[in-house]
């Protein structure tokens, strides 16, 4: 197998609470290959968000290291972008959809190229007709698509997503899940997708890592070999899907 483009080696984070350092995640080892979809699933309180902030360079690991294309991270690296769960806070309410999407690239690209790229990613997420609307004029699912488009505009190699669909209804969620898989196929972007929803993790993932305990550790990593393209109805009925679902529930300790 080829070298992973994104790698996390025995990384730990401790955060200070009232002067005392409390370990949040410990000894995390993960690797992501090109165009791979890695789901990380874990119950609440296992440090999912801390893990993702660390992977995105917003938090520096207390020990261990994270590498992007072999380079050790010292801050948010080129080619890695986070998509946050709370799209309402993460979007710039005073900017139109197109201006939000342009926000990450407008300082680095000539106007024309920037406009073209914005138009292209809006097309990709199906929001071309809403380009001149403001975020508050859009539904929750559309707002989250704006945030995804803003990240894609940077043409990232790795997209880190922190429970991006947790606040959305089931139907919107299903639509966006399929959209992500399609984007992965079209753009070759790798995904690290954090969720507490086991079915979502299995449906999307090429592999599913289980985060467990306090401090959170990677308990095990399951290879998912379900046929592609996945389908919201038929894939979820496959005996293999149900078996993965059962195993992961067991692994997390629900069973």
């Amino acid at each position: 197998m080829a070298e992973p483009i994104f790698e996390c080696r025995s990384a730990s984070v401790a955060l200070a609470f009232g002067g005392q350092a409390r370990p949040i995640v410990s000894d995390i080892g993960l690797s992501v290959h090109e165009a791979e979809f890695l789901s990380i699933v874990g119950p609440s309180g296992t440090g999912k968000t801390t893990l993702l902030r660390m992977l995105g360079g917003l938090l520096r690991p207390t020990s261990g290291e994270i590498r992007m294309r072999g380079e050790v991270l010292t801050g948010p690296p080129d080619g890695v972008v986070i998509v946050f769960q709370d799209y309402g806070n993460a979007l710039l309410q005073w900017r139109t959809v197109a201006a939000n999407v342009a926000f990450g690239i407008e300082r680095h690209l000539p106007r024309k190229e920037c406009d073209e790229r914005v138009a292209a990613v809006l097309e990709l997420v199906g929001l071309s007709k809403r380009a001149s609307d403001y975020p508050w004029q859009l539904s929750g699912g559309m707002q989250q698509r704006v945030q995804i488009a803003r990240a894609l505009a940077l043409r990232p190699a790795v997209l880190l997503m922190d429970e991006p669909f947790a606040a959305l209804d089931a139907m919107t969620k299903a639509g966006l899940q399929d959209e992500l898989l399609r984007l992965r196929d079209q753009t070759g972007t790798s995904f690290v997708f954090i969720t507490h929803d086991i079915e979502e993790a299995v449906y999307l993932g090429d592999r599913v890592a289980v985060l467990k305990g306090s401090p959170g550790r990677i308990d095990n990593i399951v290879d998912i070999t379900l046929p592609s393209p996945r389908d919201q109805v038929t894939t979820r009925q496959l005996p293999e899907f149900l078996a993965y679902r059962y195993d992961l529930h067991q692994a997390i300790g629900h069973g």
Partner: peptide, 18 residues
């Protein structure tokens, strides 16, 4: 200002003045 906006700025690699 919600701290998330600072996170957004950093993950999109803006400088502090930006």
């Amino acid at each position: 200002v919600h701290p998330r906006l600072g996170d957004v700025g950093r993950t999109l690699r803006l400088s502090n003045t930006e």
